[in-house]
Design a protein around this nucleic acid. Structure first.
Length: 156
DNA sequence: GCCAACGTTGGC
DNA sequence: GCCAACGTTGGC
């Protein structure tokens, strides 16, 4: 399978790029959306590129990047009674929800803001800049889009 | 299976 | 806090 690229969103008040930098590898869990779940379960593979996006932040945008360290596995939080993300329908036989592990790569000196993404040529079709699908917490990114965002991020 | 009501996300 | 854009739920 060719390497793919993803954009994963987090509210920095819940989990920020600083947290990721400190943790190195973190479990990307608590995703409770079927479209995103399907990506995590079926498509995200070890070595894939990850753009880390801060939502509901100031500024909002891509804060850094990394790679997938572990492909989809059952999200334990769905099966833990009392967990905020507990789902009574989830079980060992039928986990329903999936997680992946992601490995920190770099933190951009300056966040590549959503505003900048929208203005950048070549990113017109990037999911996060379009109305359709913009809310998805795990989004596919094309190799070209990934490269452009990385270039802007490295430029600082 | 349709569709209205309701809930959530997230930019602004 | 508002609201657009969905996703989910549940009555029928």
């Amino acid at each position: 399978m060719a390497k793919r690229y993803w954009l994963m969103k987090s509210e920095p008040s819940a989990y920020s790029i600083e947290d990721w930098e400190r943790d190195g590898v973190t479990a990307w869990e608590n995703i409770r959306n079927y479209t995103a779940r399907n990506s995590l379960r079926d498509d995200v593979q070890v070595g894939d590129g990850v753009l880390f996006y801060h939502s509901s932040a100031d500024p909002t945008g891509v804060a850094g990047a990394g790679t997938v360290a572990r492909a989809g596995y059952p999200d334990g939080s769905a099966q833990r009674k009392g967990d905020d993300y507990f789902d009574p329908k989830a079980s060992a036989d039928n986990p329903i929800w999936y997680a992946v592990d992601i490995k920190f790569g770099e933190r951009f000196k300056n966040v590549v803001t959503l505003d900048e993404l929208k203005k950048t040529k070549g990113l017109e079709e990037m999911v996060v800049t379009t109305k359709k699908g913009q809310r998805l917490s795990v989004q596919p990114v094309t190799p070209g889009e990934f490269e452009i965002v990385m270039r802007i991020g490295k430029r600082g």
